[in-house]
Design a protein around this nucleic acid. Structure first.
Lengths: 187, 187
DNA sequence: CCGTGGTGTTTACACTGCTTACATCATAAG
DNA sequence: CTTATGATGTAAGCAGTGTAAACACCACGG
């Protein structure tokens, strides 16, 4: 095989394959089952337990990947947003991610966070830190911290409200416009 | 029996009992199972299907009850918030509800919304309408709509961030203070 | 008094997460 | 080259779940 990871014994890189399959299932369907994922990868139903203690552990791994992807997306343009306009785009990217990957986003944020899932916690903290740092550098006023968490909360809330259909938009561009306007109204 | 509802045939009011049991399970545990709920009420495992097409249908009923409770809480003090300070308390109540009933809140907002669950959709819309109306009456400026959705989003996002442990508070009063400060920073 | 239809039961099936015991096989020591 | 070893995947099975039929009950209207 030509898997990038150091080829392990039997499968190549089962762990990564399982995460990928779980994520694929999540993105296209609704729920994902350990057995279906194993079947999808072509492996016995209990093989995943060599790599994940739990079904939740696999889910946490998927969530962690989601956090890393989101962070990469937020950082894709350039460095931290230096202007308020750039911060608006930040929010747009955040909401777009949620709408583009609804089930993944729900797994990332909509579940109880098990504090022992280290990988996940660290990946989530990385996103958290990114947002906090960018708002802090943008608004170095007295109540910068509160404004920062407020804008982050607003962005996060916007994502959920669009996901749940409480807010609606005709198109992606329309949605982006509304996100910008909403965040701008708060600044 | 002395159930308030018009006593139906065998059980009194199974539907309400099921919703109550499901909610009880949700509030104290994590997941709830149809069978466990049925067992809890003292009825056969398939009896719920006379009242709910699906497991999701029961969950939607629980969510709807949650929305009604949240709305009642928001309206408990008096009418709509007439001042900005009152609106801050609105946000505090919202976040408190989320933290006090984490699993219920997640069921209300953290799941895909099936648009055919009429009861749930209507109950959610009632809360939505309450928030929109209150912000609209408080901030009748040009971009009132955007400010309204922004504050609602921020409140909603705050609730989730506290739920997920991304934001932490030492006590309920500390949390309330931070919620007030955060929302105030946006106005 | 008896049918009828709403209500709950029985039985059964396919599926899930998970445990325990077992088979395989790449690697490293002899 | 052989062989012990430990990581990796398998086989078999248990308890619990959601769901679908077919069936039993029983308050109510005729």
């Amino acid at each position: 095989m030509s898997t990038s990871s150091a080829g392990t014994y039997h499968h190549g890189d089962l762990r990564a394959a399982l995460v990928a399959a779980a994520r694929r299932a999540l993105e296209s369907g609704e729920t994902f089952s350990l057995r279906a994922v194993a079947r999808d990868v072509g492996v016995s139903p209990t093989a995943p337990y060599r790599h994940f203690a739990d079904r939740d552990a696999l889910e946490s791994a998927v969530a962690a990947e989601g956090f890393r992807d989101l962070r990469a997306l937020l950082l894709s343009d350039d460095e931290l947003p230096a202007t308020r306009a750039a911060f608006l785009e930040f929010a747009v990217v955040y909401v777009d991610f949620a709408v583009a990957h609804p089930s993944l986003f729900r797994v990332m944020f909509g579940r109880e966070c098990d504090n022992d899932a280290d990988e996940r916690v660290r990946a989530a903290a990385a996103v958290h830190e990114l947002l906090t740092r960018s708002t802090a550098s943008l608004f170095p006023d007295r109540d910068a911290e509160m404004l920062g968490t407020g804008l982050w909360s607003a962005t996060h809330g916007l994502a959920f409200l669009f996901l749940d259909g409480k807010l609606r938009a005709a198109s992606a561009e329309d949605r982006a416009r509304r996100v910008r306007a909403t965040i701008a109204a708060l600044i």
